[in-house]
């Protein structure tokens, strides 16, 4: 009955409903995200203990429950809580599962490396994946891929084949990252999600190109490092590698990323200054997320909130690591992203 009403409303008004409840609760939760002013105050805190106390006052449950020494565990717990919440408010599991897939691919990389390079995977495993970590570990160990979802199995097999060929640990990352973005792109249903993947792919590829340039790599290397193209085709990026960095903004003039590239270069003291790259590309994504403010019934606000919250956790980590190691406040502020709230 409910389904039918939803269907009519959706068809009549061309917006898929169902996320209305999620949107409502997210609009409240968004007000509890850390604001720019709060982040600035945190950056000014005298020591990690004070920063942690300020976080607790700002309403972060994790900060109130544990000591600052346990900040890393608290962040992991907060991430888990975020996905539990997301699952509980979304009418269908697909979209949240789609976001969680990123952690599955990460865990796949971890277990591949753990198995083939004989490393200890414990510290590197995310607990929020869609597929239980043990299942992935088991599949990698026994090479029985059929136990895993198809996309993970495919990525795992391809990565192992590539590793057997090159014997380079990097093969795992390159292949699995590529498969991950390909999978995310294939399974993005809503236009918003498709746009988001395109943005992710473009930013990842630009970042790879800039870093390859900075490390003086050749085209063959970059070709292996690239993930599926977003709006900028691979050929274009590979060509860019031949040009000096000064000409990149001109060459990317008609893409949305010209200013990003220009900003990275403008702060150059060395061949490529990558220090600001992560922050700038995160801000780019945040700007895209902010555009979801007007959606009401679709999954956009939920997705935007999850990603914004992930970035908030990152900001908290930057502050805590900075405070523990005594980085000056100005430097911390330089690293902090603009706030979504």
């Amino acid at each position: 009955m409910n389904e039918m009403v939803e269907l009519e409303y959706a068809e009549g008004l061309t917006e898929d409903s169902g996320y209305a409840f999620a949107t409502g609760s997210i609009r409240v939760l968004e007000t509890r995200l850390l604001t720019g002013a709060q982040l600035a105050r945190l950056a000014e805190a005298a020591d990690p203990a004070e920063a942690w106390r300020l976080l607790a006052e700002a309403g972060l449950a994790m900060a109130a429950e544990t000591g600052w020494q346990e900040y890393e565990a608290a962040l992991a717990q907060e991430l888990e809580r975020l996905y539990q919440y997301a699952r509980s408010v979304s009418p269908k599991p697909e979209v949240v599962a789609w976001l969680k897939k990123r952690y599955d691919f990460h865990n796949l990389k971890v277990f591949l490396k753990a198995h083939f390079l004989e490393e200890d995977p414990r510290e590197a495993v995310f607990g929020v994946g869609e597929v239980p970590a043990e299942l992935i570990a088991q599949a990698v160990k026994t090479a029985v891929w059929s136990a895993l979802p198809e996309e993970l199995a495919r990525a795992g097999e391809a990565a192992v084949a590539e590793y057997e060929r090159t014997k380079a640990a990097q093969a795992f990352d390159f292949v699995v990252d590529r498969e991950m973005f390909a999978h995310l792109r294939e399974t993005a249903r809503q236009p918003f999600l498709r746009g988001l993947v395109e943005l992710w792919c473009d930013l990842a590829n630009l970042k790879s190109a800039l870093r390859a340039k900075g490390l003086g790599k050749d085209r063959a290397f970059l070709a292996r490092a690239l993930v599926p193209p977003g709006s900028i085709p691979h050929d274009r990026l590979l060509e860019l590698l031949e040009f000096p960095l000064e000409e990149w903004p001109e060459s990317l003039k008609y893409t949305p990323y010209a200013r990003l590239i220009a900003a990275v270069r403008a702060e150059a003291g060395r061949p490529v200054d990558l220090g600001q790259l992560d922050r700038l590309s995160d801000n780019f994504v945040l700007a895209r997320l902010r555009a979801t403010r007007f959606s009401l019934y679709g999954p956009e606000p939920l997705v935007a909130y999850i990603l914004a919250k992930e970035m908030e956790l990152k900001a908290v980590r930057i502050i805590m690591v900075g405070k523990i190691n005594g980085l000056p406040p100005e430097e911390l502020k330089e690293r902090l992203r603009t706030s979504y709230a």
């Binding site: 949107t23 609760s25 409240v28």
Partner: peptide
């Protein structure tokens, strides 16, 4: 439904 979502948190 949106209101319910808001009320669930506030």
């Amino acid at each position: 439904r949106v209101s319910n979502g808001v009320l669930s948190e506030d």
